[in-house]
Nucleic acid binder design. Structure first.
Lengths: 150, 150
DNA sequence: ACATTTTGAATGTTATTACATTAATTACTG
DNA sequence: CAGTAATTAATGTAATAACATTCAAAATGT
């Protein structure tokens, strides 16, 4: 459905404003879809994203700051978010040896296993969610990069 | 900056996953920028968006459900969100005459004034944020619409 | 070496969100 | 028409996020 129809709005201030609204709306649409995947595993989306980030650094721990750098939404509460992952046994935390202010956070086997499980569902959903071909997807990604240029 | 560099990640599962990440990242980028505009007015983004929706229905009140329909992120807490707008005097609430379950919410003059003020800032920012031309913007919006097709 | 500044992470507090439930009114059905 | 279901909005609650502050450790300057 076109964004005009989704928002019951036919006129926009300008085309850039329309893009901004469409982006936010689409992001939310994506968010809802992903939430449906995550719900059975009682993950919040930030928790899931951080766990993926940890997996992305195999056999090597990341500090809290390193996690924040890699996050989609750089939030302040990563300490407490990591607490949740520890509680569930999906990661471990230990003091860094070279800088005693830092902490090393490492994904556990249990964390890797749950991610594998979710990934299957995630991929099914990701591939179903669009009628775009790969060219369109690439084009879209490039335009998003361009949008952020200034 | 390309998304690969932003996220310090060179490989993605597939092009659709890359698009999804890019979309979420770009949305957050947009969110941060808009937040900077809103901060001096101590609006949250949902509050601002709802006030814009109310303005979009001039001289005509909207029910809570009508607001939800038009929102970018259809959230459940619109009652309390509207409370905030009432507290600040940006809107009024009255019982609907034809259906006594419904309430009519109407933007106030004060609400219109503050929106005008913010809009100036908003527009300055919106026009500065991109090197895209109008064609690119239109193309991007179309691709977002297409992404949501299924 | 010592004082000062900066950095990395955690915590306290308040506001906001998510989720489930409730209360009131309207719509539907036999 | 009575009884049941559906709807509209508000509320209770627990979890999460935002924002500022704190604490320890490291870096820097004199």
């Amino acid at each position: 459905m076109k964004i005009e129809k989704e928002l019951r709005q036919t006129k926009f201030n300008n085309v850039y404003h329309k893009v901004a609204l469409n982006l936010m709306f689409t992001n939310n649409w994506l968010f809802e879809g992903q939430n449906k995947v995550l719900k059975p595993y009682s993950f919040t989306q930030p928790q899931y994203n951080v766990l993926r980030i940890l997996r992305g650094s195999p056999n090597q721990a990341l500090t809290v700051n390193a996690i924040i750098e890699r996050m989609l939404d750089r939030m302040s509460n990563v300490s407490r978010l990591v607490d949740k992952l520890l509680e569930k046994g999906y990661a471990t935390r230990s003091q860094s040896s070279d800088d005693r202010r830092s902490v090393d956070i490492l994904i556990s086997q249990k964390g890797l296993d749950i991610l594998d499980e979710i990934d299957e569902q995630q991929e099914i959903w990701e591939k179903s969610f669009t009628k775009m071909d790969e060219n369109d997807a690439k084009k879209l990604s490039d335009l998003l990069d361009k949008l952020r240029e200034r």
